[in-house]
């Protein structure tokens, strides 16, 4: 995978267009740097988060402080798009059918 070539290409695309004097920075590159920035030494895996996802989603649904109660789950969901989708889908179910 020649990521460097991709970034070379990106650099070319950043050159100001003669007609539109705007610099363009792809969101994907920004996302990549953001993910590196958020990386922690210890992170939960997808399986560990899956085991806790029902409990975590109920905490969020009840409006409790998930950030304080389950920070590692919250962090994983912020980083992992698959787990985030599953959390959001489960939360929609809980919000639609209150306990």
């Amino acid at each position: 995978m020649k990521l460097r070539e991709a970034i070379n290409r990106l650099v070319e695309r950043m050159r100001p267009n003669k007609e539109e004097s705007e610099m363009q920075l792809p969101a994907e590159f920004k996302k990549l740097i953001g993910m590196i920035e958020k990386t922690q030494e210890i992170e939960l895996s997808c399986d560990e988060v899956y085991n806790l996802l029902d409990q975590y989603t109920e905490i969020v649904d009840r409006g409790e402080n998930a950030h304080k109660l389950m920070p590692l789950v919250e962090h994983h969901i912020d980083i992992c798009p698959d787990c985030r989708e599953e959390f959001e889908a489960l939360l929609r179910i809980l919000q639609a059918s209150p306990a």
């Binding site: 020649k2 070539e5 290409r9 990106l10 610099m23 363009q24 920075l25 792809p26 920004k30």
Partner: peptide
């Protein structure tokens, strides 16, 4: 990728 990856969504800066 041999020709470079395409980046479909772009951030616009001044």
């Amino acid at each position: 990728n041999e020709d470079g990856i395409s980046f479909p969504s772009l951030m616009i800066d001044p």
